[in-house]
Write a protein that binds this DNA or RNA. Structure first.
Lengths: 154, 154
DNA sequence: CACAATTCAGTTGTGCACAATTGAATTGTG
DNA sequence: CACAATTCAATTGTGCACAACTGAATTGTG
Protein backbone atom coordinates (compact mmCIF):
# COMPACT_ATOMS: atom_id res chain seq x y z
CA UNK A 1 0.00 0.00 0.00
CA UNK A 2 2.88 2.27 0.70
CA UNK A 3 5.21 0.77 -1.86
CA UNK A 4 5.34 2.76 -5.07
CA UNK A 5 5.69 1.41 -8.59
CA UNK A 6 9.12 0.01 -9.27
CA UNK A 7 10.39 -0.07 -5.70
CA UNK A 8 11.47 -3.50 -4.54
CA UNK A 9 10.10 -4.44 -1.11
CA UNK A 10 12.48 -6.20 1.21
CA UNK A 11 11.85 -4.92 4.72
CA UNK A 12 11.58 -6.97 7.88
CA UNK A 13 8.33 -6.73 9.77
CA UNK A 14 9.85 -5.33 12.97
CA UNK A 15 11.35 -2.39 11.10
CA UNK A 16 8.10 -1.32 9.38
CA UNK A 17 7.71 2.42 9.82
CA UNK A 18 3.95 2.33 10.29
CA UNK A 19 4.33 -0.09 13.18
CA UNK A 20 6.47 2.26 15.20
CA UNK A 21 4.94 4.17 18.09
CA UNK A 22 7.90 6.52 18.17
CA UNK A 23 7.34 7.61 14.61
CA UNK A 24 3.67 8.22 15.43
CA UNK A 25 4.77 10.38 18.34
CA UNK A 26 7.33 12.24 16.25
CA UNK A 27 4.71 12.91 13.56
CA UNK A 28 1.96 13.91 15.95
CA UNK A 29 4.27 16.22 17.83
CA UNK A 30 5.25 17.99 14.62
CA UNK A 31 1.59 18.15 13.58
CA UNK A 32 0.76 19.80 16.90
CA UNK A 33 3.51 22.35 16.50
CA UNK A 34 2.24 23.08 13.00
CA UNK A 35 -1.32 23.49 14.32
CA UNK A 36 -0.07 25.96 16.93
CA UNK A 37 1.91 27.95 14.37
CA UNK A 38 -0.84 30.18 12.94
CA UNK A 39 -2.20 30.89 16.43
CA UNK A 40 1.22 31.66 17.85
CA UNK A 41 2.04 33.82 14.87
CA UNK A 42 -0.58 36.26 16.17
CA UNK A 43 1.49 36.49 19.36
CA UNK A 44 4.79 36.60 17.49
CA UNK A 45 6.01 33.46 19.27
CA UNK A 46 7.40 30.09 18.26
CA UNK A 47 6.17 26.99 20.09
CA UNK A 48 9.21 26.67 22.38
CA UNK A 49 9.02 30.39 23.15
CA UNK A 50 5.33 29.91 23.99
CA UNK A 51 6.27 27.08 26.36
CA UNK A 52 8.76 29.31 28.14
CA UNK A 53 6.11 32.01 28.46
CA UNK A 54 3.65 29.46 29.88
CA UNK A 55 6.12 28.68 32.65
CA UNK A 56 6.68 32.35 33.40
CA UNK A 57 2.96 33.09 33.37
CA UNK A 58 2.60 30.47 36.09
CA UNK A 59 5.20 32.02 38.34
CA UNK A 60 7.85 34.63 37.94
CA UNK A 61 10.75 35.30 38.09
CA UNK A 62 12.45 32.03 37.21
CA UNK A 63 16.10 31.30 36.74
CA UNK A 64 17.33 29.80 33.51
CA UNK A 65 17.93 26.56 35.39
CA UNK A 66 14.38 26.45 36.76
CA UNK A 67 12.95 27.12 33.34
CA UNK A 68 15.14 24.33 31.96
CA UNK A 69 13.92 21.97 34.66
CA UNK A 70 10.29 22.64 33.77
CA UNK A 71 10.80 22.32 30.05
CA UNK A 72 13.50 19.67 29.95
CA UNK A 73 15.81 22.02 28.05
CA UNK A 74 19.38 23.02 28.74
CA UNK A 75 21.06 26.40 28.65
CA UNK A 76 22.30 25.71 25.13
CA UNK A 77 18.70 25.89 23.97
CA UNK A 78 17.34 28.36 26.49
CA UNK A 79 20.01 31.04 26.45
CA UNK A 80 19.44 32.11 22.84
CA UNK A 81 15.67 31.56 23.11
CA UNK A 82 15.45 33.87 26.13
CA UNK A 83 17.64 36.41 24.40
CA UNK A 84 15.05 36.45 21.59
CA UNK A 85 12.18 36.86 24.07
CA UNK A 86 14.10 39.76 25.59
CA UNK A 87 14.59 41.29 22.14
CA UNK A 88 10.81 40.99 21.67
CA UNK A 89 10.36 43.00 24.86
CA UNK A 90 8.46 40.22 26.64
CA UNK A 91 11.07 39.35 29.21
CA UNK A 92 13.96 40.85 31.09
CA UNK A 93 17.09 38.96 32.11
CA UNK A 94 18.84 40.05 35.27
CA UNK A 95 21.79 38.61 37.13
CA UNK A 96 20.71 37.44 40.59
CA UNK A 97 22.14 39.46 43.49
CA UNK A 98 22.30 36.57 46.00
CA UNK A 99 23.89 34.14 43.54
CA UNK A 100 25.76 35.75 40.73
CA UNK A 101 25.79 32.54 38.71
CA UNK A 102 22.05 32.72 38.26
CA UNK A 103 20.17 34.78 35.72
CA UNK A 104 16.58 35.57 36.66
CA UNK A 105 13.96 35.95 33.97
CA UNK A 106 11.28 38.55 34.67
CA UNK A 107 8.18 39.24 32.64
CA UNK A 108 7.85 42.76 31.30
CA UNK A 109 4.41 44.37 31.33
CA UNK A 110 4.05 43.39 27.68
CA UNK A 111 5.07 39.84 28.49
CA UNK A 112 2.56 39.57 31.32
CA UNK A 113 -0.17 41.13 29.19
CA UNK A 114 0.39 38.61 26.42
CA UNK A 115 -1.15 35.80 28.50
CA UNK A 116 -4.59 37.31 27.88
CA UNK A 117 -4.11 36.91 24.16
CA UNK A 118 -2.91 33.34 24.67
CA UNK A 119 -5.74 32.24 26.93
CA UNK A 120 -7.90 30.85 24.13
CA UNK A 121 -5.18 28.78 22.50
CA UNK A 122 -5.38 25.58 24.59
CA UNK A 123 -9.11 25.25 23.91
CA UNK A 124 -8.69 26.02 20.21
CA UNK A 125 -6.08 23.30 19.97
CA UNK A 126 -8.13 20.82 21.96
CA UNK A 127 -10.96 21.40 19.50
CA UNK A 128 -8.65 20.82 16.55
CA UNK A 129 -7.39 17.59 18.10
CA UNK A 130 -10.67 15.81 17.49
CA UNK A 131 -10.34 13.67 20.63
CA UNK A 132 -12.73 13.52 23.55
CA UNK A 133 -11.60 15.13 26.82
CA UNK A 134 -11.31 11.63 28.29
CA UNK A 135 -9.08 10.52 25.45
CA UNK A 136 -6.91 13.61 25.82
CA UNK A 137 -6.57 12.97 29.56
CA UNK A 138 -5.63 9.39 28.99
CA UNK A 139 -3.21 10.29 26.23
CA UNK A 140 -1.46 12.81 28.45
CA UNK A 141 -1.21 10.28 31.25
CA UNK A 142 0.18 7.56 29.00
CA UNK A 143 2.70 9.93 27.42
CA UNK A 144 3.83 11.01 30.87
CA UNK A 145 4.49 7.43 31.93
CA UNK A 146 6.22 6.73 28.62
CA UNK A 147 8.51 9.74 28.93
CA UNK A 148 9.43 8.80 32.50
CA UNK A 149 10.24 5.21 31.57
CA UNK A 150 12.31 6.29 28.57
CA UNK A 151 14.25 8.82 30.61
CA UNK A 152 14.97 6.18 33.23
CA UNK A 153 16.20 3.76 30.55
CA UNK A 154 19.51 5.48 29.84
CA UNK B 1 4.12 22.26 43.66
CA UNK B 2 6.19 23.38 40.77
CA UNK B 3 6.56 26.94 41.96
CA UNK B 4 9.94 27.64 43.48
CA UNK B 5 10.68 29.88 46.42
CA UNK B 6 10.22 33.52 45.65
CA UNK B 7 8.34 33.19 42.38
CA UNK B 8 4.94 34.83 42.36
CA UNK B 9 2.19 32.56 40.98
CA UNK B 10 -0.36 34.22 38.74
CA UNK B 11 -1.20 31.79 35.94
CA UNK B 12 -4.64 30.95 34.61
CA UNK B 13 -5.72 27.35 34.88
CA UNK B 14 -6.13 26.80 31.13
CA UNK B 15 -2.54 27.81 30.47
CA UNK B 16 -1.01 25.44 33.03
CA UNK B 17 1.89 23.61 31.37
CA UNK B 18 1.25 20.30 33.07
CA UNK B 19 -2.29 20.27 31.75
CA UNK B 20 -1.22 20.41 28.15
CA UNK B 21 -1.28 17.26 26.06
CA UNK B 22 0.90 18.90 23.43
CA UNK B 23 3.67 19.51 25.90
CA UNK B 24 3.44 15.88 27.03
CA UNK B 25 3.79 14.84 23.39
CA UNK B 26 6.67 17.22 22.79
CA UNK B 27 8.47 15.91 25.88
CA UNK B 28 7.79 12.25 25.19
CA UNK B 29 8.93 12.62 21.60
CA UNK B 30 12.21 14.15 22.70
CA UNK B 31 12.60 11.46 25.36
CA UNK B 32 12.14 8.81 22.68
CA UNK B 33 14.73 10.40 20.43
CA UNK B 34 17.11 10.52 23.40
CA UNK B 35 16.45 6.85 24.16
CA UNK B 36 17.24 5.94 20.54
CA UNK B 37 20.44 7.98 20.54
CA UNK B 38 22.86 5.48 22.12
CA UNK B 39 21.45 2.65 19.99
CA UNK B 40 21.64 4.67 16.79
CA UNK B 41 25.13 5.83 17.65
CA UNK B 42 26.26 2.26 17.06
CA UNK B 43 24.91 2.59 13.52
CA UNK B 44 26.29 6.09 13.08
CA UNK B 45 22.80 7.47 12.43
CA UNK B 46 20.62 10.24 13.82
CA UNK B 47 16.95 9.52 14.43
CA UNK B 48 15.70 11.25 11.26
CA UNK B 49 18.39 9.47 9.25
CA UNK B 50 17.23 6.19 10.79
CA UNK B 51 13.65 6.99 9.73
CA UNK B 52 14.79 7.56 6.15
CA UNK B 53 16.67 4.26 6.20
CA UNK B 54 13.55 2.50 7.55
CA UNK B 55 11.62 3.69 4.52
CA UNK B 56 14.34 2.57 2.13
CA UNK B 57 14.67 -0.81 3.85
CA UNK B 58 10.97 -1.33 3.14
CA UNK B 59 11.30 -0.64 -0.57
CA UNK B 60 13.92 0.88 -2.78
CA UNK B 61 14.64 3.02 -4.74
CA UNK B 62 12.52 5.95 -3.63
CA UNK B 63 12.47 9.46 -4.94
CA UNK B 64 13.03 12.37 -2.58
CA UNK B 65 9.36 13.21 -2.96
CA UNK B 66 8.24 9.70 -2.00
CA UNK B 67 10.51 9.70 1.00
CA UNK B 68 9.09 13.06 1.99
CA UNK B 69 5.56 11.75 1.65
CA UNK B 70 6.29 8.82 3.98
CA UNK B 71 8.05 10.91 6.58
CA UNK B 72 6.12 14.16 6.29
CA UNK B 73 9.30 16.06 5.49
CA UNK B 74 10.06 18.44 2.65
CA UNK B 75 13.10 18.73 0.43
CA UNK B 76 14.48 21.45 2.64
CA UNK B 77 14.97 18.86 5.35
CA UNK B 78 15.58 15.79 3.20
CA UNK B 79 18.07 17.12 0.67
CA UNK B 80 20.86 17.77 3.18
CA UNK B 81 19.94 14.68 5.23
CA UNK B 82 20.24 12.45 2.16
CA UNK B 83 23.48 14.12 1.22
CA UNK B 84 24.81 13.08 4.64
CA UNK B 85 23.60 9.51 4.19
CA UNK B 86 25.37 9.46 0.84
CA UNK B 87 28.55 10.78 2.46
CA UNK B 88 28.25 7.90 4.95
CA UNK B 89 28.18 5.48 2.01
CA UNK B 90 24.72 4.14 2.87
CA UNK B 91 22.83 5.56 -0.05
CA UNK B 92 23.32 6.67 -3.62
CA UNK B 93 21.44 9.55 -5.26
CA UNK B 94 20.80 9.31 -8.97
CA UNK B 95 18.84 11.53 -11.33
CA UNK B 96 15.89 9.61 -12.80
CA UNK B 97 16.16 8.91 -16.54
CA UNK B 98 12.40 9.05 -17.27
CA UNK B 99 11.83 12.23 -15.27
CA UNK B 100 14.85 14.42 -14.88
CA UNK B 101 13.24 16.39 -12.07
CA UNK B 102 13.31 13.34 -9.82
CA UNK B 103 16.27 12.10 -7.81
CA UNK B 104 16.11 8.41 -6.93
CA UNK B 105 17.65 7.21 -3.68
CA UNK B 106 19.25 3.74 -3.84
CA UNK B 107 20.66 1.73 -0.97
CA UNK B 108 24.31 0.80 -1.28
CA UNK B 109 25.36 -2.67 -0.13
CA UNK B 110 26.47 -1.13 3.15
CA UNK B 111 23.12 0.64 3.49
CA UNK B 112 21.17 -2.55 2.86
CA UNK B 113 23.40 -4.50 5.25
CA UNK B 114 22.82 -2.01 8.04
CA UNK B 115 19.23 -3.18 8.49
CA UNK B 116 20.53 -6.34 10.14
CA UNK B 117 22.24 -4.26 12.81
CA UNK B 118 19.05 -2.22 13.28
CA UNK B 119 16.67 -5.15 13.59
CA UNK B 120 16.84 -5.32 17.37
CA UNK B 121 16.20 -1.65 17.99
CA UNK B 122 12.38 -1.56 17.88
CA UNK B 123 12.14 -4.29 20.53
CA UNK B 124 14.81 -2.67 22.69
CA UNK B 125 12.87 0.56 22.60
CA UNK B 126 9.55 -1.12 23.28
CA UNK B 127 11.12 -2.69 26.36
CA UNK B 128 12.41 0.68 27.53
CA UNK B 129 8.96 2.23 27.06
CA UNK B 130 7.52 0.34 30.01
CA UNK B 131 4.06 0.08 28.43
CA UNK B 132 2.18 -3.09 27.61
CA UNK B 133 1.88 -4.07 23.94
CA UNK B 134 -1.82 -3.24 24.13
CA UNK B 135 -1.05 0.22 25.51
CA UNK B 136 1.53 0.81 22.78
CA UNK B 137 -0.96 -0.23 20.11
CA UNK B 138 -3.61 2.04 21.50
CA UNK B 139 -1.17 4.91 21.88
CA UNK B 140 -0.10 4.58 18.28
CA UNK B 141 -3.69 4.51 17.11
CA UNK B 142 -4.67 7.56 19.16
CA UNK B 143 -1.61 9.50 18.00
CA UNK B 144 -2.46 8.65 14.41
CA UNK B 145 -5.98 10.01 14.75
CA UNK B 146 -4.67 13.07 16.56
CA UNK B 147 -2.10 13.83 13.86
CA UNK B 148 -4.73 13.45 11.12
CA UNK B 149 -7.17 15.75 12.87
CA UNK B 150 -4.50 18.37 13.52
CA UNK B 151 -3.30 18.28 9.93
CA UNK B 152 -6.87 18.68 8.71
CA UNK B 153 -7.35 21.67 11.01
CA UNK B 154 -5.27 24.14 9.02
C1' DC C 1 2.17 23.15 -31.04
C1' DA C 2 2.95 27.06 -27.52
C1' DC C 3 3.15 28.40 -23.15
C1' DA C 4 1.14 28.79 -18.57
C1' DA C 5 0.79 26.02 -14.54
C1' DT C 6 2.64 22.55 -11.85
C1' DT C 7 6.07 19.41 -10.02
C1' DC C 8 10.44 18.46 -8.24
C1' DA C 9 14.91 18.98 -5.77
C1' DG C 10 17.87 22.12 -4.00
C1' DT C 11 19.36 26.48 -1.45
C1' DT C 12 19.06 30.16 2.01
C1' DG C 13 17.84 31.84 6.38
C1' DT C 14 15.81 31.31 11.09
C1' DG C 15 15.09 28.82 15.24
C1' DC C 16 15.25 24.97 17.94
C1' DA C 17 17.83 20.60 20.34
C1' DC C 18 21.79 18.88 22.17
C1' DA C 19 26.76 17.60 22.94
C1' DA C 20 30.89 19.61 24.48
C1' DT C 21 33.37 23.19 26.40
C1' DT C 22 34.35 27.60 28.95
C1' DG C 23 34.66 30.61 32.80
C1' DA C 24 32.77 32.61 36.71
C1' DA C 25 30.49 31.87 41.27
C1' DT C 26 29.38 28.96 45.02
C1' DT C 27 29.62 24.88 47.96
C1' DG C 28 31.78 21.09 50.22
C1' DT C 29 35.76 18.99 52.50
C1' DG C 30 40.09 18.38 54.58
C1' DC D 1 40.72 28.89 55.82
C1' DA D 2 42.24 26.70 51.21
C1' DC D 3 41.05 24.58 47.36
C1' DA D 4 38.77 20.84 44.91
C1' DA D 5 34.26 19.81 43.24
C1' DT D 6 30.04 21.44 41.72
C1' DT D 7 26.69 24.63 39.82
C1' DC D 8 25.28 27.87 36.54
C1' DA D 9 24.77 30.41 32.10
C1' DA D 10 26.75 31.12 27.85
C1' DT D 11 29.10 29.74 23.54
C1' DT D 12 30.37 26.76 19.61
C1' DG D 13 29.33 23.37 16.34
C1' DT D 14 26.20 19.88 14.14
C1' DG D 15 21.86 18.41 12.51
C1' DC D 16 17.19 18.75 12.02
C1' DA D 17 12.41 21.45 10.69
C1' DC D 18 10.30 24.63 7.96
C1' DA D 19 9.23 28.92 5.26
C1' DA D 20 10.43 31.16 1.13
C1' DC D 21 12.54 31.05 -3.05
C1' DT D 22 15.06 29.33 -7.38
C1' DG D 23 15.52 26.97 -11.61
C1' DA D 24 14.92 23.07 -14.34
C1' DA D 25 11.66 19.52 -16.15
C1' DT D 26 7.13 18.03 -17.12
C1' DT D 27 2.12 18.42 -17.67
C1' DG D 28 -2.10 20.60 -18.90
C1' DT D 29 -4.76 23.70 -21.86
C1' DG D 30 -6.06 26.75 -25.42
Amino acid sequence: MTTPEGARPHGSEALRLNRQVCFAMYSASRAATAAYRPMLEELGLTYPQYLAMLVLWEAEPRSVRELGEELGLDSGTLSPLLKRLEALGLVQRRRSAEDERRVEIFLTDAGAALSAKASGIPQRLADAAGLTPAELDQLRETLGRLASALQASH
